[in-house]
């Protein structure tokens, strides 16, 4: 446990020193989207005003997913393919599983903070825009943000320990892009009943559960997935990716 906490302390210290670039990396995208889709397009009457309310929780979930990618996936890909800094950790008196779980924990904290910072940033940008119904319920928000953070970090571990760096461009085009477009970030899952049973295919996308979790927590007036389904989905994917990630991490690090 000592080694686990020491590794976590190191990761949080390094992250806090790089807070500004890290925040820029995670916040630029949601802020720009809010400016265009939440401000410009509604004024041009090109999108409905409610869209602003619908996309705020979605953008939070995308922000968290990207934080998991930047905090765990990208560094791990570089590490495993060359710098091998991970070997120092593996030689510490801690199990391989312990090293993997520490990465998930640090990544989850990073992602949760990114999500929590994105929310007020977006609210600030839209505070004069009428028709935005964002009312965070903090009691639900905090545990859900942590859970979604865990899910995105575990996802980062799973993909990061499998992808070769030369495919990281492909990763955005083939995995992350579709995940975001079909992740119910810009529309509520319940609304998908219009497409019939295909609605359930969306449940294969972990981001759907993150978006719906945030929807429940910050825009309670918008229809969202039933809470039990959403909890089972988020928790289930978090556990699944932690297990898969830990396994492929071990395969890549101990030959």
């Amino acid at each position: 446990m000592t080694a686990f906490l020491a590794l976590l302390r190191r990761d949080l210290k390094v992250a806090s020193r790089n807070a500004i670039p890290l925040l820029m990396a995670t916040l630029t995208q949601p802020i720009l989207v809010v400016l265009v889709f939440g401000n410009i397009l509604p004024r041009l009457h090109l999108v409905a005003a409610e869209f602003r309310t619908v996309m705020v929780p979605g953008l939070m979930s995308i922000t968290m997913l990207m934080a998991g990618v930047q905090g765990v996936l990208m560094p791990l890909t570089v590490d495993l393919s060359g710098s091998r800094e991970v070997d120092e950790r593996l030689l510490a008196p801690i199990s391989v599983l312990g090293v993997a779980l520490e990465k998930v924990t640090a990544g989850a904290i990073h992602a949760a903070v990114a999500g929590l910072v994105a929310l007020p940033a977006m609210m600030l940008l839209m505070h004069r825009v009428t028709g935005v119904e964002v009312h965070p319920r903090w009691v639900a928000l905090l545990p859900l943000v942590i859970l979604c953070g865990l899910l995105s970090a575990a996802f980062g571990l799973t993909i990061g320990s499998q992808v070769q760096p030369r495919f990281s461009g492909l990763l955005f085009a083939v995995i992350l892009g579709p995940m975001m477009l079909f992740g119910c970030a810009y529309y509520p899952w319940s609304g998908l009943s219009v497409i019939g049973p295909l609605q359930y295919v969306f449940l294969l996308n972990p981001l759907v559960f993150m978006s719906e979790s945030m929807r429940l927590a910050v825009t309670p007036d918008v229809a969202h997935m039933p809470a039990p389904l959403l909890l089972v989905g988020t928790l289930g994917f978090a556990v699944l990716f932690t297990l898969l990630g830990a396994r492929s991490f071990e395969r890549r690090t101990v030959l």
């Binding site: 020491a6 060359g82 710098s83 091998r84 800094e85 070997d87």
Partner: peptide, 30 residues
């Protein structure tokens, strides 16, 4: 706990200072 390794790949922690490379490493070992 009983071994230490100087690996072929120089895998120094690039995000911290030279001094912290040492102090963090010691912290991992409690």
């Amino acid at each position: 706990r009983r071994i230490a390794v100087v690996p072929q790949t120089r895998n120094l922690d690039r995000d911290v200072t030279v001094r912290e490379v040492l102090t963090f490493h010691a912290a991992y070992f409690g």
